[in-house]
Design a protein around this nucleic acid. Sequence first.
DNA 1: TACAAAAAAAGAATGTATTCAACTTTTTCC
DNA 2: GGAAAAAGTTGAATACATTCTTTTTTTGTA
Lengths: 206, 206
Amino acid sequence: MGTLRERQKADREKRILSAAVHKFRANGYKRVRIEDLAEAAEVSVGTVYNYYGTKGDILIAIVTMEVEEVLAEGQALVDNPPTDPGEALLALTFCYYDHSLNYLTKEMWRRAMALSIEAPDTPNGRRYATLDTKLAKQVGDLLCRFQQQGKLAPELDAPALGRVVFNNLNQSFIDFVTDDSMTLDNLRANVTALTTPIAQLLPKLT
Amino acid sequence: MGTLRERQKADREKRILSAAVHKFRANGYKRVRIEDLAEAAEVSVGTVYNYYGTKGDILIAIVTMEVEEVLAEGQALVDNPPTDPGEALLALTFCYYDHSLNYLTKEMWRRAMALSIEAPDTPNGRRYATLDTKLAKQVGDLLCRFQQQGKLAPELDAPALGRVVFNNLNQSFIDFVTDDSMTLDNLRANVTALTTPIAQLLPKLT
DNA sequence: TACAAAAAAAGAATGTATTCAACTTTTTCC
DNA sequence: GGAAAAAGTTGAATACATTCTTTTTTTGTA
């Protein structure tokens, strides 16, 4: 264990993040003021800003936790996927979706996505973009694996198709979080309708 | 011509919008305050809010102008497309891209996109979503046209594939506006790399 | 033309994210 | 152990979008 100062710092940061996870979910991201978080974490407003540059930074920290868990789940699936490429793509997609609302609400996702588009040059924007890239790459990896197994034609541009599939699952997810009445089942159905036509084309090349 | 009041209203709205088009481009969306627009339009801050509910509403009004012009250009292309489906898809995509920066800057696009994700239930959010849907539909229409001409297999789900192609061109455009150093040429190259693999699969079914 | 009602404009007041200068705590060094 | 330096905390001040109440302008009517 480090110095007193280091312990205090780690503790304060943890308190702020916990307060945010709890309050954002309970009261809604927008309605929670920095002052509310400061109070719950027993620090001052200024201190919150010593740990997180903006309110959005706090959110991105939570998104990072969520997506890193999702990536781990996804990796397990990539390492041991269903036999059929089309099924595997959908399984991976559903895996992402199923683990997307542990820490985050739809409102929080909306704000995080908005942030990544609006402020791509900030540390948080970059952080979100990195996560996005990792997810897209994981989809590409899955396709590569099938290609190596000889289940897909070698001339196929697996990374590009991975990107295509990811763009669709990502846009479908955006549609999901921007419609509060849409259920996870609806989302699965929507993405299936987009992914299946692509997946059905794949084997034709072999 | 209507009553005095109607003429004044129309004139004020026009002045506010003109001020916004000019100032947002010149000084950047974020740096322009409502007060600046009010001053340029020779009205008060309160009056700006009588015409546009939020700062974002003003932006969406400009986006609407831009996209409606783009849709008209796109329709001309759909009505008289290149012979090859793959080429036609790219031509339509480039047409969108080439007319995307008349009124808007990358920063303005970023804010508008962020807004549509973040506040999908507001009038402006819905307005943006509608434009998006129209663009996606236009891509689907192009594919339908080829299908009717017998150039694509009838069992192909043209609207779904239109959506897939649109998702890619849209995500590529997001990548473009979120990277200030990316040129239109880069953007064209990127989207070509994604669209071509899809397009090459299409004729295999016939 | 003059007056009451309706509509709209004005700008002061409010709320909240963020910044900043002054104050405390912790560490370092003797 | 104590003084100086470094690091961190604090909450008041700032900036700007948005709201709200008051004042002004326009309209309809006698």
